[in-house]
Design a protein around this nucleic acid. Sequence first.
RNA 1: GCUGUUGUAGCUCAGGGGUAGAGCACUUCCUUGGUAAGGAAGAGGUCGAGAGUUCAAUUCUCUUCAACAGCUCCA
Length: 645
Amino acid sequence: MSVVKITLPDGSVREHPVGVKGIEIAQSISEGLARNSLAIEVNGEIWDLSRPILQDASIKIFTWNDKGGKYAFWHSSAHLFAEALEALYPGVKFGIGPPIENGFYYDVDLGDVPFGDEELLAVEKKMVELAKTNSQFVRSEVSKKDAVEYFTQKNDPYKLELIEGLEDGSITFYQQGNFVDLCRGPHIPSTGPIKAIKLLNVAGAYWRGNEKNKMLKRIYGITFPKQKELEEYLFMLEEAKKRDHRKLGKELELFAFSEKVGMGLPLWLPKGTILRERLEQFMRRAQIRAGYDPVVTPHIGSKQLYVTSGHYEKYGKDSFQPIHTPDESEEFLLKPMNCPHHCEIYKVKPRSYKDLPIRLAEFGTVYRYEQSGELHGLTRVRGFTQDDAHIFCRPDQVKEEFIKVIDLVLFVFKSLGFENYTAQVSLRDPENKAKYIGEDALWERAEREIQEAADERGLKTVAVKGEAAFYGPKLDFMVKDALGRSWQLGTIQVDYQLPQRFELEYIGSDNQKHRPVMIHRAPFGSLERFVAVLIEHCAGNFPLWLAPDQIAVLPISERFNDYAQKVIDLLRERDIRGFLDDRNEKIGRKIRDAEVKKVPFMLLVGEKEVSDNKVSVRKHGEGDKGAMDLNEFVNSFAKDFALPD
RNA sequence: GCUGUUGUAGCUCAGGGGUAGAGCACUUCCUUGGUAAGGAAGAGGUCGAGAGUUCAAUUCUCUUCAACAGCUCCA
């Protein structure tokens, strides 16, 4: 009998008969593993445990603790959902139903049948019932002809469309119970392990992501092997909602919106403004140190400016419309980005190669008419301030400058404790080059330079096609919000197009005219989005240097209000921000209120403190730190009060 | 922009065809207290906006605006 060599993750090699199944390998290792195994990775592909292995292979067995195990589990759950839905709604048409980071969804066409919370519960119940039958997921290879025939008979146009795009010989079906689905797999062995099920919500989604197509219902759900894990997950979701920046922004009085001012136009309240200005100070200092020159440009620019830049052609129709003046031939646009203005600053005088790089920085407020459905707290707004800068440099300086910007972004992230970011190289969509301007050669060069710079700094990058700006590729730093939604913060972009369009030049050492390269960069991205993500990242417990109120002075009774006022005054002289709680309330109450407001330090003053000329320090979330002299307090936390270095 | 859900006091929410309620916050008074909510009284709302049905609409219907979830988009 012939054998296959199976290499385990630890490097050990075992021999099994040809056609051995994953589950059998698991059993040969241990009964426990076999019981918990959900899928198997074979030479990098994830397979069913029941699929025979015919050749030598490196394998890894997945359990619930592996991403691949969860993937198969949730993928199978999507099938279970579909089975339940079909049982309750015969004739329902199915789109796609993949596993996602947390759970799965299935796009379905229910026609005009209403589908809400009650219906979700009913399907959920049916799923539990079907899971208990522990029916096996059976894989079968089918010919394209048979596949088409099956779904034609079932009258499911979406699946037929999917099959059309598949190659004959590569089509597989999976069946569990009475439900058959077109599916590449893999799946867990049977429905039994799916014990805890929650259908989360229903939303609309265009078929194949194209807004010209029909909108299907997308039903999200999540499942777990144990009820307790589901409960923990739902609890975690609730906890995450508590740190939503929209909720905390309101509670901590950081920002607000007004219907009268207009949607997507944030109003920064006094406390939010302090936070924002501290971030600006931090960035200003870092940029001065990195050789940037601050500039200021107007909030509007003539239409011609954006015709030159190409932005008018690309976004003119979807922007705030031009501002008119008494002169009918005149049109101005609210500036949607700062680069054209900065190009004009570059052009105020002839530049020598010795002048480069020139780094122009501006906290530039821009206005973009984002689709109404896109607006989201502070993360997606119609008026926002970029910590923008444009670096004009010689072609031979691009990589070095790019690396310096990466260092700046990493410095910002480190200073604020952002550790879980993704560096994304955003490339052009090679299938749809019409979306972009500029020659192929320049694109390829820019894409290469970005990747090289990122590699040189040891960044782990993910390349994503189709995410580039229309004028060039980007290196984007993505960070997740409290609910796991990904947002782009820092961005660095190499641009060969704008210098051409604006005919930017410098005189080289050869006394000839040359074209500079432009690097767009914004380490925060925008102050709005950065603050939003920061709020969620620290759950409103800002580092001391950023906290709008750093201290609260709490007199034990009204008799000590005068002393407390003196404490506040002395602290203000040392640039420490805070407030005096002189309300006619008990100390317990004042402490509670200051804790709820997440004020980093509470300074209690009463009989003892007045006579010793001290303050009793209480730290937010930690409690009593004992009495100390005011100078001693300020000095011992001086480093935390200051901008980070 | 699309699909769906929601809109009642500053905030969180209950109610429901016969012109509104709670808790917190707010104001005043009592209380002057030692590390997470002292007590009492009071003030607050064209029930998102517009139209329709009705003797009567905050409640039902339509339109509109906004928020939320997802999709699409994101210079």
